[in-house]
Design a protein around this nucleic acid. Structure first.
Length: 494
RNA sequence: GGCGGCAUAGCCAAGUGGUAAGGCAGCGGUCUGCAAAACCGUUAUACUCCGGUUCAAAUCCGGAUGCCGCCUCCA
């Protein structure tokens, strides 16, 4: 079985054939660090985090490069507005970004280079493009001559003529062709500048990625990723720069994730519906957010809303309920579990074993098909249901064979979950945090709840059902759901 | 104006030629003092519409309608 990914370059799914056996080079365009990250950044980060984790799960060594763009108009504007240097701005938002990522359970890429650390490389690459006749300097600026690069438009599937026809382009007398883009910009006053053969200036937006991908992954590498909005012009221009200089294909597979919408609207500053990762994480668990995103295919648009996130929370609740039931049973019944021996199993236990044993294969089958996480999660829900069914038969579940199969199930689900970044928390801790988050969100005072529950428990022991039901009603109205067990009453927010 | 995508039950969402995964919500039941959770059953004669290809289409082709994205900074 082999992993197929949808390749934007050829508009079809293609098999990943690593350039070097056993190793995959992955480059993803990171963020411009001028503001805190929003849920759109989160989606891209989670998608490629899962790709990286899955490749590693399949045994590849992955070199994952994700850059920070730390010099650009918006950063400069912000630095000038605050009267600080661009590094003050970029350092601040890189720190915020890193915190958001770890909050989302996104693993650190192998290399996280910054554009400003690669200015020399950019200058060398630009010189090479000038030498090759693909770029020209005018008044301290250097532009890429797009019509000189035969493949221009191949990624986004456009013709140069079409683009020029309806494009809204600033008239720039300095450019030979309106579609030409800046490789190097002459610095204006109050802008950071680096010395170059064309005078003091700063790099254009696209050149950094060509330089950094080459430096860490070579002239050609396996997968280049980013949000779908980067297809044009950013990735198209990267191809023009890199392939123009090396004459070799930049990346074999171009992978792009779909957009995030908010309440069915495009997320944009003008609509005022930009949700930050920080805000999202204060309202929902990282795993619920990941589950929500991964229940849709990575290339389709995903619609954030209170309702959809809350459904994902219910979904996580379901998984952790099953996981908790397993770990509780294993802990209570004591003793170590051993790997099940299939020939000794029968009936329900054997059926469950077969199902659990096939789970990794089905997971791989789904993931190999262009990272079909939605299908994979479907299999996991299915497994959760079967596990709960099995657990409801206490005798079977507590037998040695049953415990062994349950232990295997727990291990398998966590291993698969790791690839998706799910099920990595202790169930009790998960529910505790969920309760803290939800009570905070709704302004509920936990102590007050606990007191009412204690009062109800007392009423129940006296078989004062009327009072017990009264209290239940009060709590239900507050959105609190009670669960009576032989040892006490637990609660959660609905 | 150019390029591209999507349209599956109340909602979300897989499925890419052989007869509709999964989740949420709902309904009936088991369990429970009552509940909750869990489980069992149930919920699309059917995949926007109209044609076509085929023994067979949600799946392929043509057309229509509707939404959306990109072409300008953007994950």
């Amino acid at each position: 079985m082999t992993l197929k990914l949808y390749n934007t370059l050829r508009n079809r799914k293609e098999v990943l054939v690593p350039l070097q056996e056993g190793r995959v080079g992955l480059y993803v365009c990171g963020i411009t660090v001028y503001d805190i990250c929003h849920v759109g950044h989160a989606r891209s980060a989670v998608v490629f985090d899962v790709l990286r984790r899955y490749l590693e799960y399949r045994g590849y060594e992955v070199i994952y490069v994700k850059n920070y763009t730390d010099v650009d108009d918006k950063i400069i504007a912000r630095a000038n507005a605050e009267g600080v240097s661009i590094y003050d701005i970029s350092n601040r938002y890189i720190a915020a970004h890193d915190e958001d990522m770890s909050g989302l359970g996104v693993l650190r890429p192998t290399v996280t280079p910054r554009a400003t650390e690669h200015i020399d490389g950019m200058i060398r690459l630009i010189e090479k493009l000038v030498e090759r006749g693909l770029a020209y300097a005018v008044n301290g600026n250097v532009y890429y001559a797009v019509e000189r690069f035969p493949g221009y438009g191949k990624l986004s599937g456009r013709q140069l003529e079409d683009m020029m026809a309806g494009a809204r382009i600033d008239v720039d007398e300095q450019k030979n062709n309106p579609m030409d883009f800046a490789l190097w910009k002459a610095s204006k006053p109050n802008e950071p500048a680096w010395d170059s053969p064309w005078g003091p200036g700063r790099p254009g937006w696209h050149i950094e990625c060509s330089v950094m991908s080459q430096k860490y992954l070579g002239d050609s590498f396996d997968i280049h990723g980013g949000g779908e909005d980067l297809v044009f012009p950013h990735h198209e221009n990267e191809i023009a720069q890199s392939e123009g200089a090396t004459g070799k294909p930049l990346a074999n597979l171009w992978v792009h994730n779909g957009f995030v919408k908010i309440n069915s609207e495009k997320m944009s500053k003008s609509l005022g519906n930009v949700f930050s990762i920080q805000e999202m994480l204060s309202r929902y668990s990282a795993e619920a957010i990941r589950l929500f995103m991964l229940q849709s295919h990575y290339r389709s648009a995903v619609d954030f809303s209170e309702e959809s996130l809350s459904e994902a929370r219910q979904g996580m609740d379901r998984f952790y309920t099953a996981l908790k039931a397993i770990s509780d049973l294993l802990a209570a019944s004591g003793g170590d579990s051993a790997p099940p021996s299939p020939e000794s199993l029968s009936g329900k236990t054997a059926e469950l074993f077969t199902l659990i044993q096939s789970l990794p294969d089905r997971f791989v089958e789904a993931m190999d098909d262009d990272l079909n996480t939605a299908r994979a999660i479907g299999y996991l829900f299915d497994a959760a249901r079967q596990l709960n069914a099995f657990l409801s038969d206490a005798k079977a579940a507590r037998s040695d064979a049953g415990r062994n199969v349950l232990a295997l199930a727990e291990k398998t689900i966590k291993e698969i979950g790791y690839v998706l970044g799910l099920f990595q928390e202790d169930p009790d801790l998960y529910f505790q945090r969920d309760r803290e988050r939800e009570t905070r969100k709704r302004g509920i005072e936990p102590a007050e709840i606990e007191q009412l529950i204690a009062e109800r428990w007392a009423a129940r022991t006296e078989k004062n059902w009327q009072r017990a039901d009264e209290i239940r009603k009060i709590l239900t109205e507050k959105g609190i759901v009670l669960k009576d067990t032989p040892t006490g009453t637990t609660w959660k927010v609905a």
